[in-house]
C-alpha cells in the first residue's frame, strides 16, 4: 500500500501513514483554510487500509494546535479508525497543555477506541 507522507506547514500538520513500517502519525498545527479538503486523502487512505489492516495499529496524534474545523475532521478520522480491529490511539500533549489533554479526553468519549495519553 502506498505511503501517505505530507510535510507539515505553518497551517497544516505533518502526516505519515505507512502501513509497511507501521507508522501512523498526525502532528503539528492544523488550521487549514479548507479542513475537509485537506483531510480527504487521509480518510481515503484509512478506508483503503481498513480492507487489510496490520494486526495492530498505533495511531499517533501529536498536535500542537488545531482549529475547530479540523476538530470535526479529526473526529471523522477517529470514526474511520473505529471500524478497524487492533487500533490504539496515542494522544500526545505538551505537559502544560491542559486544553489539548482535555480535547483528547473528549474525543475518547466520542469514539469506541482505546486512547493512551502521553506527554512530551
Amino acid at each position: 500500500m502506498e505511503i501517505l507522507n505530507l510535510e507539515g506547514t505553518e497551517d497544516t500538520p505533518k502526516i505519515i501513514l505507512d502501513k509497511g513500517n507501521g507508522i501512523f502519525e498526525i502532528s503539528g498545527r492544523s488550521l487549514p483554510e479548507d479542513s475537509a479538503e485537506f483531510y480527504q486523502p487521509v480518510l481515503d487512505w484509512i478506508n483503503e487500509y481498513a480492507e487489510s489492516p496490520n494486526p495492530s495499529t498505533d495511531f499517533m496524534f501529536k498536535l500542537e494546535y488545531f482549529n475547530t474545523a479540523s476538530s470535526k475532521l479529526i473526529l471523522d478520522v477517529l470514526s474511520a479508525l473505529e471500524d478497524i480491529d487492533g487500533v490504539n490511539i496515542l494522544w500526545y500533549f505538551h505537559e502544560d497543555d491542559e486544553d489539548m489533554e482535555e480535547a483528547g479526553e473528549e474525543f475518547s468519549e466520542l469514539v469506541e477506541i482505546p486512547f493512551e495519553f502521553k506527554t512530551y
Partner: peptide, 14 residues
C-alpha cells in the same frame, strides 16, 4: 461536533 457536518463555507459551527 457529533451532529453537524462541515458547512459549504468550511466551518464546523464550533
Amino acid at each position: 461536533i457529533k451532529n453537524t457536518e462541515i458547512s459549504d463555507k468550511g466551518g464546523a459551527g464550533l
